[in-house]
Design a protein around this nucleic acid. Structure first.
Lengths: 295, 295
DNA sequence: CCAACCCATACGTTTTCGGTATGCCAATGG
DNA sequence: CCATTGGCATACCGAAAACGTATGGGTTGG
């Protein structure tokens, strides 16, 4: 069946007259009459009683009218919804974020997003360094807050800031009395490391930093997450070299100190699939920049 | 927008490929391709991502798909419902009945109807002698159980039985000791009458009965309903001449006795609008005949 | 580098739709 | 009683839309 027929049917039912309905539909009366009869032929039963003063729904017609109105509304709503999603005023945005950034950015980012795109459902997923690429590529997240940025031909990157590396240590460590720790003081101390560079690019930045200053730190443990790293630091297993923003999620008893003479930093980036046409990405980028500016 | 486009869209979305969908729709691939593009033009945004291995919904496409599926289902259900109503397997049947018949017929009729037309919603309305015609003519009831039948050019009648008149009296009345009351014994006794013939045709049958036997009964009261008549009989206000079936609704203390020598009866009929095309009427008639047969 | 696959475009044919003219029927009014 | 009016149905024609066939262009895989 054709939606046009249903629209005509509803118009005639409401106007209780072919002529009046034709006028409202801005068409001539005869073709409308024909369409109504075709619909009746399709149903196999009369939908109207033809009286001398217009048309009147039969029981079958009333049954159809109830559904036809809803079907028309749903179809119209469907294309309207599609337009709204395409325009970015409705829809869903899946945001991935790496754990280190959560405490620093989400409290500023989420309210900003809700204000900018109130009609959009947001959902958030924590990403690990090893799965973030896959999650973007299979579209299970639309956009990702990464540190550092992803490098991949299919993935577009926009840098929105950077974080200096800092040293995380237990507050009873003698180094904690310094306001900034010289690199040389790290020599020989045990390091709590994140996964190796092939699984976590931030490791290579740390490695490069140490190499440049000719510091050797034996690796006491390798852990998967920044969270675990800080736990081991608290436990006295060793020191960790982490982005500054990680200290917002640090447990009591773990303190962060700048590294004197080390200006190395790790970049914060928004990443998304190059072929993603979602208009929400631009808005997200704006919001993320705002959130990072107030860091 | 056109429902065909939506159907095509859903097919392509499900098949994730224009070619596969075209095959399932038994049409060639190119016209399907152009229909999809026309739909996209109408929405104003791409609904699919074209990959090298088929098509994949965009977010906008997913938003549309959710509604389009429902809209298609509703439209299909609508014409299906109209067919079912026309065939009598679904719908609504408004049954009017006159109060005298309620106790005698409804307990048998309603189960019979529910068994015969399980998909049909029934509703029941009590009719008075004065409004029953109007209720049929304005279609607020589809079919009416009447006693006696309605005579009107627009209304079709099917007799399904008859009820003899009986005399209703208080059980302490001396007449109650007779197994049948001779007409002559009614002479001069007060009568509880129903509304005059122009408002209640059963009155004229009673009047004819009395006239034929040359009995005069002064009218003690006129009441609107059989129910009221029996209440006044119980109160000792007078006697009433009522159809036999009324005794099923008689209060304790009111007894019915046959009238000896009077074979007069009043007919029970099913009535409906001549132009009503509801297939349920035939079924209703069958059920009513069954119910009356077991009276 | 060629073959296979899949979608897009072009063009001619067919179906369907809408407009105009007109017929039919019932109700209304002089 | 006939004429007029109001409303839907039918007939026919021109226009628009859809379908099918043929073909192009891109990417993947051997």
């Amino acid at each position: 069946m054709d939606l046009r027929r249903l629209r005509y049917f509803v118009a005639v039912a409401e106007a209780r007259s072919v002529g009046k309905a034709a006028e409202r539909l801005r068409m001539a009366q005869p073709p409308l009459s024909v369409q109504i009869r075709k619909l009746e032929a399709e149903v196999g039963a009369p939908l109207f009683r033809r009286g001398t003063r217009g048309m009147d729904l039969t029981d079958a017609g009333q049954a159809l009218l109830a559904r036809a109105g809803e079907a028309l509304a749903l179809a119209a709503d469907g294309i309207e919804a599609a337009r709204a999603v395409a325009a970015g005023s409705r829809g869903r945005l899946s945001v991935g974020y790496m754990f280190v950034l959560a405490n620093a950015m989400l409290p500023r980012l989420i309210p900003e997003l809700r204000r900018s795109i109130p009609g959009v459902d947001l959902d958030f997923a924590e990403l690990s360094a090893s799965t973030r690429e896959a999650r973007l590529l299979d579209r299970s997240v639309t956009v990702a807050l990464c540190m550092p940025a992803i490098h991949h031909p299919e993935i577009q990157v926009a840098g929105i800031g950077a974080q200096p590396f800092m040293l995380a240590m237990p507050n009873r460590s003698p180094l904690a009395r310094l306001s900034a720790v010289p690199m040389i003081r790290l020599q020989g101390r045990p390091l709590i490391a994140l996964p190796p560079p092939e699984r976590d690019p931030s490791s290579s930045a740390v490695a490069a930093l140490l190499r440049r200053h000719q510091i050797v730190m034996p690796i006491a443990s390798r852990v998967e997450t920044v969270h675990s790293a800080m736990s081991l630091v608290l436990a006295g297993e060793g020191l960790a070299i982490l982005p500054a923003c990680a200290q917002l999620g640090a447990p009591r008893g773990v303190v962060f100190r700048p590294l004197r003479d080390a200006t190395d930093s790790i970049d914060i980036a928004v990443c998304w699939r190059r072929d993603s046409q979602s208009p929400l990405i631009r808005t997200f980028l704006k919001c993320a920049e705002k959130a990072v500016a107030r860091l």
